[in-house]
Every structure is written in C-alpha cells, then in structure tokens.
Amino acid sequence: MIDQMVEALIQVLGTILVAPLYSGIAEKLKGVVSLRRAQSVLQPYYDLFKLLKKETVVPSSASELFVYGPYFTFGVYVLISFVIPVVYPRPVFLTPTVDFLGGALLFSLVSFVKVLSAMDSKSNYVALGVSRAASFGFLAEATLITVFFAVAISTGTNNPYVESAYASNPSHYLALDHLLATVSFFMLWLFETGKLPVESQGLSEMGMIDDSLTYEHSGKPLALLKWGGYIKAYLLGSVWLNVFLLPWGGQVGVLGAFFDIGLMFAKWMILIAIVLVAETSLAKLRLFKIQDHLAIAFVLSVFSLLFSVI
C-alpha cells in the first residue's frame, strides 16, 4: 500500500507540476514557427506564480461560487489524475474511485461548475461563450463517453488501465475500432483544449468559446482555472497517448514511476509535434462548422464501437 501511495504521489504531482510545461513548450514552438523568438517554455509557471500573488476582483453581484468554484474544479481535476493512466501504467492509490465512464462524468462535473462559476459574474461576454460551449456540449460529451466505451467494449472492462495494456498488443492496436477511436479522440482533444481548427487563443471577444469561462476571473481563482486547464489538456492528452496512440513502455515500481515521467515527456513531444503542425497550418472554422468537426468525431467513435462488437 505504501508503494501504491508513492506511485500515486508521483503520478499526481507529476501531473500537477509538469502539465504547464507542455503548454509552455507547445506555445514556444508555435511562436518559433511564427517567425518569433517567442516566450520562455516556463512562461505558464511565471504566469501562475504572478497570478497567485495578485488581488482577486469579484463582480459586485457575484457569490462565493465565483471565488471558490475554481478551487473545487481544481480538486476534481486532481482526483481524475488519480484515476486514469496518465503517468504510471498500473492502478495507483485511489484509482478505483471511478472507472472510465465515471471519469467522463467527472469532466462534465468540472465543466458544469466552471460554467456556473463564470456565469455568476453575470457578464454578457461570459454568457456569449457559454451559450456556444453549451450548444457543442452535447456532441463533445457524447464523444467522450462513446470513445471511452469503444475500448471498454473490446476489453470487456471499463478499467482504463486494463484497456491500456490491451491496446499495447499489436493486433488489437491495429484493429479498425482502435484506429477509429484514436482519430475520434484526437479530434475531441482539439475541441476540449481549445486548439485549432476549433478555437484559437486570440484577443477577439467575439470568437471566444472556452476563453469566456475565465474572462471575468482574476488573481488566485484565475490561476487555478488556468492551471486546471493545463491539467485537463495533460490528462486527456495523456489518455490519448497511453491508451490510444502509444500504449507502450510504462515501467512499474516506485523507480519505474520516476522513469514514467520521463517517458511521458517523450510521448508528449510527439503529441506536441502533431499539434504544432495542426495549429500552424489550420485556420479557425466558422462557428457552425465546429459542430461538423465534432459530429465527425462522434460518428467515428460510434463506428469504432460498432466495429468492436461485430
């Protein structure tokens, strides 16, 4: 049990502390391809560090939900990092808390609380973005659930760790259902993390979707929301890497857990490279075309499910 706790600690701290780095690297490389020297790879840490020291401005009619909602969502993200194989390849302490589907429901819980917390500001700009996010939510949530199930059905269990091990077998890996689920989940990841062609981190308020959820926050709650965003990108990205794209190489044991952090770094460089190409060669879709993007992801995931049983 002590071993499992240490492994859990490495997995969770490895997630919380390393997640911003990947965003930093991705932004740096994106800047370099855009002809610039660009910011330090450690920029996300600098931003978080500064925000944690700043004052928190709260809209006059907002309640505690506005201030403490981000703390709760951060807590849920940390809980999810116990549950899914994002560093260590075997179940760790507290892993059985929820299964894959439960994990998907926890992601929904986060977005529910995040939306309420942001809307508590009563800002029209937040409402504008939330109304968009809400209208795509049905496809996004459905895809997340079906993708998780696509592999669950091929293995007969909804335990993410078993699925990871199952997919590492080449014949399972190359099966059509696995490949479809892989593509589908990647498309979903682009949407969930606000990457092109779905969203761009621009300055225009008129195009905001995800950015609107942090539009009114400041200081510590903002830091936690941003940090939570990095963790979310890391969690979903790592699931994609460990369960779908590259289910190989995880080492066990306490020392192995340290090795796994390095391994994840290597895997992430591959993901970052793919995203870099996508982010620098694509433009942002028209608003109502985003549903097409998600609909394709959803249909692929449903096909993946069908192929896995027939």
Binding site: K30, V33, S34, L35, R36, L196, E199, S200, Q201, G202, S204, G207, E279, T280, S281, A283, K284
Partner: peptide, 16 residues
C-alpha cells in the same frame, strides 16, 4: 483578417 482566423504563421508574416 488572418489574426482573427487564428492563422498564426501568415499573421506573423504579415505583421512582419
């Protein structure tokens, strides 16, 4: 126009 489309490379190139 390219900036609003999140078209980062052409946008940077044009700003240059």
């Amino acid at each position: 126009l390219t900036e609003h489309a999140g078209f980062s490379v052409p946008s940077a190139n044009l700003l240059y």
